[in-house]
Amino acid sequence: MQRIADRVEQIGGVLRVTSTERQQLTAGQTKVGWLISETDTGLVYLRTADRPQGLLIIEDTGWIDLTLANGWQNWGEAYEIARVRRLNRTVHVTGLIRNGDPGIGVRITTLPVGFRPGKVQQKVVWANGQARQVDIYPDGRILIGDTPTSTFRMTLDMSFVAEQ
């Protein structure tokens, strides 16, 4: 570990370790002000005087594929698939989907726990060349909003703060 710490000092103070390795760090192996990045979780910690393992400052879940419902499917390999990511408390949903049930109130997908808003979010998406509404509920459901859409295609590109 000392060899790695010496290299970190040379390149400016970002230590890349696994979560297990981070938990085993001692004060002599790191310096105050270093960033500690977990390679297996995406979490980033700041080394402080009283915490040699660091204080959590950045949480990145990485992209997680969404399971689509009611006939909705990903557009294809050349396009962004439906997925979700949380950076700290901000959730990002993206993807190009097609051929689903276009009815009002129809579920497109359900977000995992930890990626859900505290209150209903109404978002605008691009669907078959027109702006359409989708609603994101605190239980994680993403539903077609107040305007039916075509089943041809829908671009998901929205962000909100996670509270659940």
Score class of each variant (00 low, 15 high):
residue 136 I to E: 02
residue 128 N to Y: 11
residue 9 E to C: 03
residue 119 K to Y: 07
residue 91 V to D: 02
residue 37 S to I: 00
residue 31 K to V: 03
residue 83 R to V: 00
residue 5 A to D: 07
residue 49 A to P: 02
residue 23 Q to F: 08
residue 63 W to I: 03
residue 32 V to S: 06
residue 6 D to S: 09
residue 85 R to L: 02
residue 36 I to T: 12
residue 33 G to W: 10
residue 46 L to E: 13
residue 6 D to I: 04
residue 72 W to H: 12
residue 48 T to P: 05
residue 19 S to H: 12
residue 94 T to K: 15
residue 20 T to S: 09
residue 1 M to T: 11
residue 140 G to I: 05
residue 154 M to A: 10
residue 24 Q to P: 07
residue 145 G to K: 07
residue 38 E to N: 12
residue 42 G to T: 07
residue 77 E to Y: 00
residue 163 E to W: 05
residue 110 T to G: 10
residue 46 L to G: 09
residue 59 E to H: 11
residue 34 W to A: 11
residue 44 V to M: 14
residue 32 V to K: 13
residue 36 I to E: 13
residue 143 L to Y: 08
residue 52 P to F: 06
residue 28 G to M: 02
residue 91 V to W: 01
residue 150 S to G: 14
residue 88 N to F: 06
residue 125 V to N: 00
residue 154 M to G: 04
residue 4 I to F: 05
residue 46 L to Y: 14
residue 85 R to E: 09
residue 92 H to F: 14
residue 31 K to L: 10
residue 45 Y to C: 05
residue 94 T to I: 09
residue 82 A to I: 01
residue 89 R to D: 14
residue 116 R to E: 14
residue 37 S to Y: 15
residue 143 L to Q: 04
residue 14 V to L: 12
residue 84 V to Y: 08
residue 153 R to Y: 15
residue 163 E to F: 08
residue 31 K to S: 12
residue 115 F to L: 05
residue 115 F to T: 00
residue 14 V to C: 11
residue 111 L to Q: 09
residue 45 Y to G: 09
residue 67 T to V: 11
residue 34 W to G: 08
residue 61 T to P: 10
residue 63 W to F: 10
residue 16 R to D: 07
residue 56 L to G: 06
residue 8 V to A: 13
residue 95 G to C: 04
residue 126 W to K: 02
residue 85 R to K: 15
residue 141 R to W: 01
residue 131 A to M: 07
residue 27 A to M: 03
residue 62 G to E: 10
residue 124 V to G: 03
residue 28 G to W: 02
residue 44 V to S: 15
residue 48 T to G: 01
residue 40 D to T: 06
residue 16 R to Q: 11
residue 68 L to W: 11
residue 118 G to T: 05
residue 11 I to G: 02
residue 65 D to K: 13
residue 25 L to Y: 12
residue 87 L to V: 12
residue 140 G to M: 06
residue 118 G to H: 10
residue 117 P to F: 11
residue 84 V to A: 07
residue 17 V to L: 15
residue 82 A to L: 06
residue 84 V to F: 04
residue 46 L to D: 11
residue 62 G to C: 09
residue 13 G to N: 09
residue 131 A to P: 01
residue 112 P to V: 00
residue 150 S to R: 08
residue 71 G to W: 04
residue 78 A to K: 10
residue 30 T to L: 08
residue 19 S to D: 15
residue 153 R to N: 14
residue 101 D to T: 03
residue 74 N to Y: 05
residue 21 E to D: 15
residue 136 I to A: 01
residue 63 W to H: 10
residue 112 P to S: 08
residue 26 T to C: 01
residue 88 N to T: 10
residue 27 A to I: 12
residue 136 I to R: 04
residue 70 N to M: 06
residue 61 T to F: 06
residue 60 D to H: 13
residue 136 I to G: 08
residue 13 G to Y: 08
residue 133 Q to I: 01
residue 101 D to K: 01
residue 133 Q to C: 00
residue 149 T to G: 03
residue 22 R to Q: 15
residue 44 V to Y: 10
residue 72 W to Q: 12
residue 62 G to F: 04
residue 12 G to M: 09
residue 51 R to W: 04
residue 52 P to L: 01
residue 78 A to W: 05
residue 36 I to D: 14
residue 72 W to E: 14
residue 127 A to K: 04
residue 138 P to M: 06
residue 156 L to C: 05
residue 4 I to M: 09
residue 43 L to Q: 15
residue 101 D to Q: 05
residue 36 I to C: 12
residue 161 V to P: 00
residue 13 G to F: 11
residue 161 V to C: 01
residue 135 D to S: 10
